[in-house]
Structure formats: C-alpha cells, structure tokens
C-alpha cells in the first residue's frame, strides 16, 4: 500500500516533466521547442516553429495541422533560388523516419497561420494539433514570443 502510494506520488511528480514534450500516445511522436512570433493585429499571417521527433520504430507521416487561432494552418517550405529570391509553398505530407527529427525552423519551413481569429500576443500560448496519416493527433501548446524572437529561447 505504502509502496503504491509512493509510486503514485512519483507518477504525479513525473507528469509535468512528460507534459513538456507533447506525447502522441501510441504514435511516439515528440514535439519540442515550439515557438511563434507575436502578430501585429490579425490582418497579417502568423508563423510558428517546432521540432517534430519520431521516437518510435516505424515511419510516421505528418499530413497537416490545425488550430482555433487560424482559419487555415499549413506547413510551408521556403526555397531560395540561385538569384537569391525566396518563395514559399505548402510542404505537403512529411514522412519522418524512425529516430529522425524534422525541424520546422526559420529559413527552412514554418507553420503558416492564415486568417488569424485573434492577435498572437507575447507571453500567451495557443493550441496547435498535428495530424498524422495513421489518424493520430498530437496536441502542441505553442508559446508566443516577441515579434523579434529568433528561436525558442527568444
């Protein structure tokens, strides 16, 4: 009995630690270092960044995402041609091999948040849900940092 109580206490203490990376139950997907920049009002699109790690032993396919913050949320890939011109396009489905991490990071990809339903305010966070081809969903709380933030540490 006493042992069980101690285990439960340990589980309770561990829970916040586990919650810092969003677990997808059986999907073994861990999302880390999520962050976004504050928006100026709601007329401009917002962007969010994160690292999506497949800690499991089977490949997973990230098919899309959604948030109540934006009417449309899409992963966009930025490409820069040999003239130095940057453009962005939907990244499509992203396959993540076992043990691999996909970095949705400045210069490479971003989560494009279109038709914001409310301003993204520094210090707040918003919920984002990642959808996978096996039907799994991974909820991710995304902190909103300052507009001039350069990474998850600000």
């Amino acid at each position: 009995m006493r042992h069980a109580a101690r285990s439960m206490l340990a589980a309770l203490l561990l829970a916040p630690a586990l919650a810092t990376g969003a677990w997808a139950g059986s999907d073994d997907v861990v999302v880390e270092n999520a962050w976004s920049r504050a928006s100026i009002g709601t007329s401009r699109p917002g962007a969010a960044y994160m690292e999506v790690r497949n800690a499991g032993e089977e490949a997973v396919t990230l098919t899309g995402l959604q948030s109540d913050l934006a009417m449309v949320s899409e992963i966009h890939r930025v490409t820069t041609d040999d003239r130095g011109v940057s453009s962005m396009a939907p990244a499509g489905a992203i396959v993540i091999a076992p043990g691999e991490t996909v970095a949705i990071a400045p210069g490479v990809m971003h989560v494009m948040l279109m038709q914001l339903q409310r301003p993204m305010r520094e210090g707040e966070s918003f919920p984002l849900t990642l959808n996978f081809s096996d039907g799994g969903e991974v909820p991710v709380p995304v902190p909103v940092l300052g507009i001039a933030a350069r990474g998850p540490e600000g």
């Binding site: 920049r37 007329s43 401009r44 699109p45 917002g46 962007a47 966009h76 930025v78 940057s86 962005m88 400045p106 210069g107 971003h110 494009m112 948040l113 507009i147 001039a148 933030a149 350069r150």
Partner: peptide, 11 residues
C-alpha cells in the same frame, strides 16, 4: 505581411 522570411531577417 511576410510571415517568416522577413521577420527572421529583421530579427
């Protein structure tokens, strides 16, 4: 209105 490239450059 640039969501990613410009704020990244400005930052």
């Amino acid at each position: 209105f640039c969501p990613a490239v410009c704020p990244t450059t400005l930052a």
